[in-house]
Nucleic acid binder design. Sequence first.
RNA 1: GGCCCCAUCGUCUAGUGGUUAGGACAUCGGCCUCUCACGCCGAGAACAGCAGUUCAAAUCUGCUUGGGGUCACCA
Length: 478
Amino acid sequence: MSDVRVRFAPSPTGYLHIGGARTALFNWLWARKVGGKFILRIEDTDLARNTAESVQAIFDSMRWLGLDWDEGPLVGGPDGPYFQTERLAIYREHAERLIRAGHAYRCYCTKEDLAAARAAHEASGTRQAFRYPGTCRKRTDQPDAPFVVRFRAPTSGSTGWVDLVKGRIDVPNDAQQDFILLRSDGVPLYNFGAVVDDVTMRINLVARGDDHVVNTPPQILIYQALGDAVPSFAHLPMILAPNGEKLSKRHASVSVLEYADAGYLPDAVLNYLARLGWSHGDQEIFSRAELIAHFDWARCGHTPGKYDAKKFLYVEAEHLRAHDDVTLARLALPFLAKRGLEVAADDPRLPAAIATVKTRAQTLADVADMVDFFFRDVPELDAKAKEKFLVPASAPRLGALAQVVSGTAPFDRTTLEAKVGAWLAAESLQIKDVAQAARVALTGRTQSPGLYELMEVLGEARTVARLEQGRARSLGDA
RNA sequence: GGCCCCAUCGUCUAGUGGUUAGGACAUCGGCCUCUCACGCCGAGAACAGCAGUUCAAAUCUGCUUGGGGUCACCA
């Protein structure tokens, strides 16, 4: 056990994407490694973009990935509520405290005032960024008008911290402005809401994406004004699209749930995400337990990583093959069902069929596609395959093969291979001469597992029937 | 543009002053082979540039260049 408290605080404005998932993962790994607590908090203060479906997508994604949270929505905890919109009174109270202490003030400037100031600033042709001019900074009256609460930011000195992954970072305070803490409707802006929540939820390590390093100085200023301990920070490099742009839907599947639908294994997703920006020597494939055992902030890279679909698929395939056939059968069931194949959960042919395609499939969706023909009464016949291999010349050989194979006992791959081998020798034929026609007859396709394992899993009755049917089709029947 | 961060094969990375700069994915050959995969063997492929420190620099320093982030009553 340790007193480490980390959190993942997504905004429900879309689906949980892989960048967010990686942030969640690293926090979770650290909590699990050191025996700390992993807290989930929903930052839903953007009333306009926030949706209930997104909240659900976050829960579903986290659960699918197996990133369980110790405190947060659904599970509760001592520092709730865990939705920011349910914590408005807490923010207001903290804002009042800052005003009383002189660290913040009410600002009555309207959006129009600000827009005009901004326009004037830009018209002046300066290269400096626009900053709030401080109109209400020294104001003493309290008009009966809407106001926002602004932070009284220092104008000299600098604010810095030792980032757990990036090292020492210092930012001059004159880069700050009197940023807004509370909007006129009482809803906090990101920096204030996050800090108040992190303080009240006793978060002592904040790990998030690199895009938040600019938020860190103002947040530290708030911690100090509040008189609370500043937590440790860890900023993780971003995940970029292959072309170096910010990763978006245009470049790849970015939603975690899309990977679930595509038949990826959650552990594979975690493995790929972890290795993008973190390393442990030369090791590429990690189980969940290994990730937890080896994860360390110091081993995180400093360079933004580009998303690589091929490597992702490779990692996925490695994880798929690491599972035993029975487990894979259970996992593949929903994908079989999606293809209209009703296979009983305990059908012994399923693990056997899966064993034959394990080295050929990468995802569970592949598995379902590849074992499809085992479970259909009549395999779907590929038109090109039929045209090329189920030709009249194949008919006698398919017929003969059906007879040769018929009655083989035990009906297993080694016995079948021996028996067929003897027949081929007697006929002065080579397996090449019959293999493709037989494959098409048995599976409907030109690519499949080996013939004998196919026959074994199919069983004698189906094997013979399909070979006979192939013979008939070769002659142009049916 | 201001501020901040970053820089090793195409990509993810190992490397913390002395290495033939290693691994993985991808790519290209070859082997295996009833197809497709798997597997195995092999090849090409990188320290952004320029100064400096040092006996010695991918490793330390500076500059340049390039890339990224961010500049809201979004998060």
